[in-house]
């Protein structure tokens, strides 16, 4: 263990990691480093030191318990491409490039807290819970509400994200994203669905400053699944609910439109591929 290094710590267990963090105020936690390193390079972030989670074996891996998938925070995105959850698989498979997926972790994706990050709509639609650990113990918080603004979360000082818990389900789950080329792109908009017991729950990326879902949209989506509403109804519900950004990549109008299209397509897939439709 390199705990003694003043600027850089390579702990091997969660308690060591927490201790290393406590010893280094202002230190940045590094998991895969695929956010941290570019930020440092572009000088959008400074660091008074680093605590690397690379050797903390206990934080890596996917386990199935009591109807939940428990995904260690430093599980690489590459491992999620074969996770027993179709939504996660789809979101992971379209993240970055093979090289990036090998290093990138689920924890880094969550803590980056940017509304266009791949895994976030899937976690929101799936009703994920986060396990946050500090020197005084662990707490579980719902992912919904954890991100408060772009780049901001409810993670407390000295706290680590240790696991992401995703309810297992037998329904249909999927994720899709839109960008201007066919691989390696930041989502202009994205959407995820989890559909079970006749209901559909949708979540969206880049539809608002934080990952977004709404009961009204889910009501319209469920109605479409039941044959009680039309695709246009769902698109209208999405358009009314979202507040997407306007930038040089796309207009807010396009995003609003595309989010509605993605919602309809995901519900269509749930109905057809998932055999869930009325």
């Amino acid at each position: 263990m390199l705990l003694a290094a003043p600027l850089f710590a390579l702990p091997e267990t969660p308690p060591e990691a927490l201790a290393a963090l406590a010893d280094r105020p202002g230190a940045v936690v590094v998991a895969g480093g695929t956010e941290v390193m570019p930020d440092l390079l572009w000088r959008t972030r400074t660091a008074a030191g680093f605590v690397s989670l690379r050797r903390v074996a206990a934080l890596r891996g996917i386990a199935r318990t009591d109807g939940e998938l428990v995904i260690g925070a430093t599980t690489p995105v590459a491992a999620l491409t074969s996770a027993p959850d179709a939504g996660l698989r789809a979101a992971a498979s379209s993240l970055g490039t093979p090289l990036v997926r090998t290093e990138a972790t689920i924890g880094g994706n969550v803590i980056s807290a940017l509304p266009y990050r791949n895994l976030l709509p899937t976690l929101l639609a799936g009703g994920a819970t986060l396990e946050l650990t500090s020197a005084t113990g662990s707490r579980a918080v719902p992912f919904d509400g954890f991100i408060t603004a772009p780049g901001r979360t409810g993670l407390a000082e000295g706290e680590l994200l240790t696991a992401v818990r995703l309810p297992a389900h037998r329904g249909f789950a999927d994720y899709t994203k839109v960008g201007r080329r066919n691989a390696q792109f930041v989502a202009t908009v994205s959407a995820a669905i989890v559909s079970r017991d006749g209901g559909a729950r949708l979540a969206f990326g880049n539809a608002a400053p934080i990952p977004f879902r709404s009961d009204d949209v889910d009501t319209a989506a469920t109605a479409l699944l039941d044959g009680q509403a039309s695709a246009a109804d769902l698109q209208a519900a999405v358009a009314a609910a979202v507040d997407p950004p306007e930038d040089t990549i796309a207009s807010a109008d396009y995003r609003r439109h595309a989010l509605g299209v993605l919602a309809v397509r995901l519900v269509t897939r749930a109905a057809v591929d998932g055999g869930l439709g009325a």
């Binding site: 789809a90 379209s94 994203k177 066919n182 989502a187 994205s190 993605l262 397509r265 995901l266």
Partner: peptide
């Protein structure tokens, strides 16, 4: 492409 947005 890999975003699979065309399906459906």
């Amino acid at each position: 492409g890999v975003g699979r947005s065309a399906e459906g």
